[in-house]
């Protein structure tokens, strides 16, 4: 129990440090950059105003205050789960992001399913047939997969499956059919890292003594592979997942834009284009929160998979 608490504690500290550093940097950047959020708002509403009216608006949003005051106000807000209001949509940022979150999570889940379906077979084939043609296929897939821009992969998929073969809808969401192309794009784009890692781990696991022992006991090859070797290679894969949850959230953005998927990515890109600072800051905060929470879950999962860690042993 103590170890669980200390894990939660250290992740919480990480969260606080991260929020403080990132939010301060974004505030600082906001202050030193040219361009005026008030003008941006007025441009969206297409109204012509006098300088006095602009000043009044600036006061209303608090932009006339010194940066430290603005910053501490914002910090005070987050503690009360208030991320401020969007400058453009005039809605609470938290509601806007939460409204987009389910679509992003759904897409991420679809991508993970595809990722699993691709990387486990290819990783296993690469390891079992090391140096032979299935291995070459798996390695080339990983190499090309790591080199292809994911938005271009999505474009190609749309072109062939939606426009040429007319099998799947181009964009939008709602039905299962809408899920297929974005999920494949995401899964394929993420797969190379996992294929390589699984292959390398399996190759070294297959040479270890407990696999030899299992062979000596006369267990069937498939049984050894699935119950012994694969299980032993699981921990690094989970670590990798914990580390790459952030890049999953980042990489999903491009795919959301490409498929007009109504997730967080679309919201943030709009926010950046319109220089809607509260939305950008809120987004960074929420992503940071998600990253830390996933890492905490991964930490706790270790305890389930490998009880050795409970006794304070370092396990790689």
């Amino acid at each position: 129990m103590r170890i669980v608490l200390s894990m939660i504690g250290s992740r919480l500290i990480q969260l606080v440090v991260m929020v403080l550093v990132l939010s301060f940097v974004t505030f600082l950047l906001m202050k030193i950059t040219p361009g005026d959020p008030i003008r941006a708002i007025l441009k969206v509403d297409d109204v012509i105003t006098t300088t006095a009216e602009e000043e009044k608006l600036r006061e209303e949003y608090g932009f006339d205050q010194p940066i430290l005051i603005q910053y501490s106000r914002w910090l005070l807000g987050i503690v009360q789960f208030d991320l401020g209001e969007s400058l453009i949509a005039n809605k609470p940022v938290l509601d806007m992001i939460m409204g987009r979150l389910p679509a992003s999570i759904a897409l991420a889940t679809g991508g993970l399913v595809v990722l699993f379906l691709i990387s486990v077979p290819l990783g296993v084939l690469g390891a079992v047939y090391e140096g032979r043609w299935p291995d070459y296929i798996s390695r080339w897939f990983a190499l090309v997969g790591a080199s292809i821009p994911r938005f271009w992969l999505g474009l190609l998929l749309i072109y062939f499956f939606s426009l040429k073969l007319n099998l799947l809808p181009v964009m939008g969401n709602g039905t299962l059919a809408h899920f297929i192309l974005p999920s494949i794009t995401l899964g394929v784009a993420m797969a190379p890292l996992y294929i390589r890692l699984l292959r390398e781990r399996l190759i070294s696991t297959l040479q270890s003594s407990y696999i030899e022992a299992a062979k000596a006991r006369g267990l069937r090859k498939e049984r050894i592979l699935i119950f012994h070797a694969l299980r032993g290679s699981l921990v690094p894969l989970i670590t990798m997942f914990g580390l790459s949850i952030g890049s999953l959230l980042g990489g999903i953005t491009v795919i959301e834009i490409l498929f007009s998927w109504p997730g967080m990515g679309e919201l943030i890109v709009q926010g950046v284009m319109q220089r809607d600072y509260p939305v950008i800051q809120g987004y960074i905060l929420i992503v940071g929160f998600l990253v830390v929470i996933t890492n905490l879950i991964v930490d706790l999962l270790y305890l389930v998979i490998n009880p050795q860690i409970k006794q304070g042993k370092e396990v790689v």
């Binding site: 950047l29 950059t33 943030i268 950046v272 950008i280």
Partner: peptide, 23 residues
């Protein structure tokens, strides 16, 4: 400090910075 920031993927940080400085 670096560990705190590194938990963030470069894509998100780049979005944050592009968002603040303008695209």
């Amino acid at each position: 400090m670096i560990d705190g920031v590194l938990a963030f993927p470069d894509f998100i940080l780049a979005i944050a910075i592009a968002g603040m400085l303008g695209p």
